[in-house]
Structures are given as structure tokens and as C-alpha cells.
């Protein structure tokens, strides 16, 4: 039942004829000593926080602590309601919701780190949007959260989900990988397909740097959450159609880790390089932090 990597997870699924969320839930029961129902009750609390954060971000006038973001999620929602979205209604909803959660986070609102606070928009936005579009009930969304946690666990064990260690690919890339696997299972895909989707997400943003302006979880984090939600949905679509990853998931995770570790310090959440290092980025840093 315990698994340390993608291969072991798939073997465990095959042995028990189970989906990823079933294997992960059984493992959680064993490790935590809680019952399945107790675990799901705790997850219901998380799901509720996620839904409320989306609602707040799309309806209230948010302003971040650093003052760099706020109100953008609403703009996308309103355009989608007003006219035909370029990328389709489902995608438009997913990206606006992902940004909404990030705006709530940046305004000191309540969120669920998934896997981090800086990437907290991707998982709720994709799961809740797909759930709504395909009329899936909360039980399926809870299963999605469990599937996602299994993928996040494998990445945490074998690589990292911290931007300071592995760049943005490790944060929003991992969040997208978790979300994509969850969407695949929610839509009836098998465990292998779920990991093909997760692999695609990491591959699509391999090398993405973590360069927050003034070191704050605001910009470009919000837009990277939007692209993370899109990444998850695109990758899930490919996997559900039968598109496979040539490189196995565990090797993709290894590649992501190696790329992350070889990124210079300036591009790992230090507020020195990338967008943070531009003249405008530096000016904003001086204004906010008074240096």
C-alpha cells in the first residue's frame, strides 16, 4: 500500500484494482489512524474554504497587502459573461477562479495551500470548474483532492514543491500536475492516464523561474496560477484522449528537480532576477519594502 513514486503507485492500483484516490485514502487511514469518513470530513472543510475563496475573489473588491494585484479575476469573469471568451467558457472560468484564489491569498484571506500558498488557485479552480460543468457531486471533488495529494506527495518525496528550491515549475507546475491527475480520474480516466497528464504539466513548464516582484506572493504569481489552471486542463484533455508521455512520470519529476536545482539563486524566490530584477520590479521593491 505505501508508495514512494509513480511506478509503485501504479503497481498498487493494479494489484488492488483501485484508482489513485482509493490507494491514497487507504494509505491515509493506515498512517493517520482516522477513518475514511473522518478524513473526508476534514477534506470537506478544505473544499469549503476553496469554494468560499473563489466566491470572495470573484465578487469582492480585493487589494493585496503589497498593493500589486486585485480585481483581475473579476475582469475575466465579467468578460466571459458579457461576450464570447477567446478560450471558451470552461477555460475562462477556470483561469478567473484560479486568479481569484490568489487574490484572496494576497489580501490575507483564507485559502488552502495546494501544495503551496503561492500556487493555491490551480487545484480549486480546475476541480470546481470541471465539477460544475459535468455536474459532478462533492464526493467526486473530494476524490479529486485525494488523487491530487497522491501526485503532490510523489513530487514532494522525490523532488520539491518549494519555489525557493526548484523555481515556479516546482510550485505552479506541481499544482497543475496534481490538478490534471485529479481531473483525469474525475472524468473516468485510469491511473496511468492520470500520471501521463501530470507528466505533461511538469514538462510544459520545465525551467520556469520563481521571480516574484519584491519577493511577494503577488506578481507574476497570479498569472502563473492562471496558466497553471490552463496547463492542468490541457494536459488532462490530452491524457483523456489517449496521448501519452514519452518520458515516464518519475523521470519527469527527476528532470524537474535537477532543472530546479541548477537554476541560479537569483531565479529561486530571491526577488533578485527575472521580472523582479527588471528596473520596474526593482523600483516597486524599493517602494514597498523601503530599501
Amino acid at each position: 500500500m505505501p508508495f514512494n513514486n509513480g511506478q509503485e503507485l501504479i503497481e498498487s492500483c493494479k494489484e488492488n484494482n483501485q484508482k489513485i484516490h482509493e490507494v491514497m485514502l487507504a494509505k491515509e487511514v493506515e498512517v493517520s489512524g482516522l477513518t475514511e469518513e473522518e478524513i473526508k470530513d476534514k477534506l470537506r472543510v478544505s473544499l469549503d474554504i476553496m469554494k468560499k475563496a473563489i466566491e470572495r475573489g470573484l465578487t469582492e473588491d480585493m487589494k493585496s497587502v503589497g498593493g500589486l494585484i486585485g480585481g483581475d479575476a473579476k475582469k475575466i469573469k465579467e468578460r466571459n459573461e458579457r461576450e464570447k471568451s477567446v478560450c471558451g467558457s470552461l477555460m475562462s472560468k477556470a483561469i478567473s477562479r484560479s486568479m481569484a484564489v490568489l487574490e484572496v491569498n494576497a489580501a490575507m484571506g483564507k485559502i488552502v495551500a495546494a501544495p503551496t500558498a503561492g500556487s493555491s488557485g490551480i487545484l480549486p479552480a480546475t476541480l470546481i470548474t470541471v465539477g460544475e460543468e459535468f455536474d459532478l457531486d462533492d464526493e467526486v471533488l473530494l476524490q479529486g483532492l485525494i488523487t491530487a495529494s497522491a501526485v503532490g506527495l510523489i513530487i514532494s518525496k522525490n523532488a520539491t514543491v518549494a519555489g525557493a528550491e526548484g523555481g515556479c515549475q516546482a510550485e505552479t507546475g506541481s499544482a497543475a500536475a496534481m490538478a490534471a491527475a485529479a481531473v483525469v480520474e474525475m472524468m473516468g480516466g485510469n491511473p496511468e492516464m492520470a500520471l501521463h497528464a501530470a507528466s505533461a504539466c511538469l514538462k510544459n513548464v520545465l525551467g520556469l523561474v520563481c521571480d516574484p516582484i519584491a519577493g511577494l506572493v503577488e506578481a507574476p504569481c497570479e498569472k502563473r496560477n492562471a496558466i497553471g489552471a490552463a496547463n492542468a486542463l490541457i494536459s488532462a484533455e490530452m491524457a483523456l484522449a489517449g496521448v501519452k508521455s514519452i518520458i515516464p512520470f518519475d523521470e519527469v519529476v527527476q528532470a524537474m528537480y535537477r532543472v530546479g536545482r541548477s537554476l541560479p539563486f537569483e531565479l529561486r524566490e530571491s526577488a533578485i532576477g527575472g521580472l523582479a530584477g527588471t528596473p520596474t520590479g526593482q523600483r516597486i521593491k524599493r517602494e514597498i519594502l523601503g530599501e
Binding site: 491515509e28 489580501a107 493555491s120 518525496k157 511577494l216
Partner: peptide, 24 residues
């Protein structure tokens, strides 16, 4: 290798913006 719970990955529930600079 460290083992993780579901709630280490999908969690913690927290007030933003940063797990280390705010929640911690």
C-alpha cells in the same frame, strides 16, 4: 524518506499570503 499526509499536500488551511511568512 519523509512520509506525507493528504493534509501536508492539500493544506494547511491558512490565511495568506505565505506559509512561511504568514502562517508560520
Amino acid at each position: 524518506m519523509q512520509d506525507f499526509s493528504i493534509f501536508d499536500i492539500v493544506g494547511p488551511n491558512m490565511i495568506g499570503p505565505s506559509s512561511s511568512h504568514t502562517a508560520g
